[in-house]
């Protein structure tokens, strides 16, 4: 459950931004790659616990998972990576490179 450390890191970032904006945060959107998934429920649970009594108390987090893509080595087409059906939908080849996984990002904060 490394969501606790992620939650801590998000609180620090939101707090800094809240100070800059002089406003109360009400929601924030996180995005993560498929190889480094974050469970939204667990993250919110950890976040609520740590945020108590801080400017982040009551802020709701949503997590968007960005699909991992791969590039077909034969036809160059980009498609979603699925280990159970790795064939390219364009040409049927199973020879591909996996594209870099999306990083863990604090995309957006909504203030009151």
């Amino acid at each position: 459950m490394h969501e606790t450390m992620v939650a801590q890191s998000i609180i620090e970032a939101i707090t800094a931004e809240a100070q800059k904006q002089q406003a109360r945060p009400i929601a924030a959107r996180i995005s993560c790659g498929q190889l480094n998934p974050i469970n939204e429920e667990v993250l919110n649970f950890a976040f609520e616990a740590i945020a108590k009594g801080t400017v982040c108390e009551g802020t709701k987090l949503t997590v968007v998972e960005i699909t991992l893509k791969c590039t077909c080595k034969k036809c160059g087409r980009t498609h979603g990576f699925d280990i159970y059906s790795p064939a390219c939908p364009g040409c049927g080849s199973t020879d591909f490179d996996i594209n870099p996984d999306a990083p863990l990002l604090l995309e957006e904060i909504e203030f009151e």
Partner: peptide, 14 residues
Amino acid sequence: MKVALNKKILDKNT
């Protein structure tokens, strides 16, 4: 008001 940040998380660990 919405603020777009696109800030990397866990950057302290990195």
